[in-house]
Amino acid sequence: MPRALSITTHNASLGEAPLTPEWHSRTVASETAAHKMSFTAVPTASNSYQLNDSNEVQPLHSLPPPFTTTSSPGQTSSTKLIRQGAEALLYYTHFLSPSLPCALKYRPPKSYRHPILDKRLTRARILAEARVLVRCKREGVSVPAVLGAGWEEGWIAIEWVNGSTVRDAIFGRKTWRQENQASYEGGEKDLVGLMHKIGCAVGKLHQVGVIHGDLTTSNLMLRPTVSGAEGGEEPSATSAATPFDGTITLIDFGLAAQSSQEEDRAVDLYVLERAFGSTHPEVEHLFPEVLKAYGESYKGAKVVLRKLEDVRMRGRKKSMIG
């Protein structure tokens, strides 16, 4: 006997008008495209491929012009897919010159959307992200620079940020501690310092009227400071290097918005708090240090912290009725 569900049903027949034509439960089947994240063998219609340094085939045609052409001979820059999110593709490439690496974010068209709606949305989102980044730059918030934008085609070229994510730095701390056991004495001082830096950075962001929308430790970078550089930290001859040196730089503003509402700021912090809880439970107890530094970073920050308590209480959002 087949294992398939055996369903015997009887339909309502008490004076009820027949509804939609009798369907049978079904799967709305779809072709499975062999999508692999590493893009090693995607069956596509186009012939424009390029071999990158590690000899992987990449379909560059999925990028809009001018990025569809292969690099000119003699140039070492190659375009590499870094990440494929729900909304956008992130590529590593060069922009303006072979020595200026950049993150190229491309929002491909979504075929399920009406084409007019799709174009409208893509355009709006590229512009929103670019505007937020430029605004942050103007106000001195540490974010990568916008190098170029094609809002009709759906791309934005952003300065590549060197350094590691806070996420990786925290994960790497254990190894670092093991290797530097003899010289390092700070207990958790390095972590506390990191938390303070994060709190200040988020405070600064909120102060200029921007909400990040997706604060996680993957979206916080530690950018190495060049000693003597404007705005960088004072390099101390006596303090040992820790995995948390550098300036906190915020990245990935794809969900960012311009807002000064306390509620929005509190939710921003709440997302970060939850991110710490789920990704770095072993340092979660130090998160209050983030909030402490945040609270002192601008006038009105303390009100946001109180709002944060409400947000926590609510869990997600209010219950739906019915």
Partner: peptide
């Protein structure tokens, strides 16, 4: 269905 297939997935639905 279009969204799911572009991700290599599938959609399930029931009738009325």
């Amino acid at each position: 269905g279009i969204m799911a297939s572009e991700r290599g997935g599938s959609v399930y639905a029931t009738d009325e």
